[in-house]
Design a protein around this nucleic acid. Sequence first.
RNA 1: GGUCCUGUGGUGCAGCCUGGAGUGCACGCCGCCCUGUCAAGGCGGAGGUCGCGGGUUCAAAUCCCGUCAGGACCGCCA
Length: 601
Amino acid sequence: MNNPNQATNYRTHYCGELSAENISNQVSVCGWVKRRREHGEKLAFIDLYDHTGIIQCVVDEKLNLGGEFVLKITGTVSERPEGTVNPNIKTGDVELTECEVEILNKAEPPPIPLDERVEVDENLRLRYRYLDLRKEKIQKNLRVRAKINEAFRSSMSEQGFLELETPLLIVSTPEGARDFVVPSRLHNGNFYALPQSPQIFKQLAMVGGIDRYYQIARCLRDEDLRADRQFEFMQLDVEASFVNQEDIIEIITAATKNALCAVLGDEISEAVEFSEMTYETAMENYGSDKPDTRFEMLLTDITQIFENTQANVFKAECLKAINVLGGVDKISRAQIDDLTDFSKKLGAKGLAWFKVGPKVDAAESLDGPLTKFLSADEMKALVESVSASSGDLILVIADTHQVANRVLGQIRVQLGTELSLTSGNEIQSAEDLNFVWVTDFPLFEGLDETGTPICAHHLFTMPHEDDIDLLVTGGGEGMLKARSLAYDLVLNGWELGSGSIRIHKPDIQERVFAALGLSEEETKKRFGYFLDAYKFGAPPHGGFALGIDRFTALLSGEENIREVIAFPKTQTGQDPMTGAPNRISDIHLKELGVQVPPEEK
RNA sequence: GGUCCUGUGGUGCAGCCUGGAGUGCACGCCGCCCUGUCAAGGCGGAGGUCGCGGGUUCAAAUCCCGUCAGGACCGCCA
């Protein structure tokens, strides 16, 4: 027996683990009826399945079975007669014969087909999630997820990290995402918040001398949902003392590699590369802080070429171009129009395009609606700057620096999909997984309407040592140049996680607060307990948090994290199975000291 | 808060553009037949508030407006 510990008084084997090695063994299997093929009174084939797979059982009597009936079948493992082997299933060499069938439970016909090939409406899938879960794909995904969690735990433990639990009922802070809140019964009118992350606690754990903390933590954010976002999600949450950025990168890389090995095996995992690039490089070359580095087609700055141009549309702060190799044949005019619409939706004024023809003279070979406004020198320089040759398509966005990068970056990703420049979500080899550490994130992401900087990460992020002076001398715009010791881990264009080195010295923290225009009184009110802690000898420390849902989705070849979550919610945050969220009784509300608007109709 | 796509027997689709009887396909379900099938096969049958509301029209699944639900995205997610 392969899994002796999983034999029970009901069964000796799982359906999917029977093979030629078991031939002539008497076995018992339990599971659900996948399909039946009945041939009159004396012969029927029953495909019984559990999470491990399907086994064909040969029954020589007429049974009144329905799909999804729960059976225990005891029989003999037999080699299939010649010509009846089924190579499509794992157990296709064998079948169960001389079967004794016990119906453990009947089942109504399922409201959704449990056939993998049928794509069922999301609402129905979630309403009957317990049936959806029986499908092979989700079973596999959830097991990948468990393996990842297990590998993370063992790696963190090996690296000397202590698994520490932090509270779910915490204090609400105005920073960051919207909090989910919980009314207090004992303190009417007061609310707990559910943690957006255990950030505060893991940092205080460092002050507390825990040294190395980790947790597979549930985080909750009341923001609108997306394919890669649910209200509640899981993070591998990490914090360590006496470390710098390189230490954290090393620790997380090791944990991530351990998870890759667990899921994909050692051979592929060891060949997977982790690269590093600065935020600035990512933005300039990929137009994104989460660059998909599986393919090239980098953004090129061509602003200088058109410094004195006569073409009005190119009189802009910044011009960026990408060269679509062979794009003339691969991209239709209709696709270009779609991309133009796409750019406009994303905030650009338009998308300029040039087809490169076969002529030697660059100016003569270019074709496109804007060529008549450009000089020969400009066209020549354009073609050279992106190393274009005959058959290539050059796309240009002229706008502000920020818009040009962002929009062209999204077009690049879109084209990556349309032109199949990546393997999509399939993972066949190490090249299909491209990890990038993006470092040197800016400390501030912009200025608010009063000219005050807005934190890019959080308030406790350590500024880059070379840029600390900018906080004092830089002024509003100047401060935006300040870098921080914040970093992201990116996989195939998805932000997997982020972290930073924290400020552990009160004087630096004060400088950041001052830059943000926060008075001492205000910071005391908002973060008093936290700042107090840092007066009593906080060690240098930093950390990271890695999104388990996204990581699992990517390793499972899924585009939506719902596919790797057992009981997810819809895009509007509802659970069609349980009906959450719902109204609660007036008595309940009264006890909590909460008033709500009357129910409509 | 916004944009786009989708909503038709239990399920997945077609029909909608160009209005004319709830029309069609596949799966599932029920009944009968069938001793080597494996997405079994054959014959027969049941099953519908065309998401909901309003409008236009002699007539609406189809056109228009609104609304609800699902999905993708923008905003948002320190």
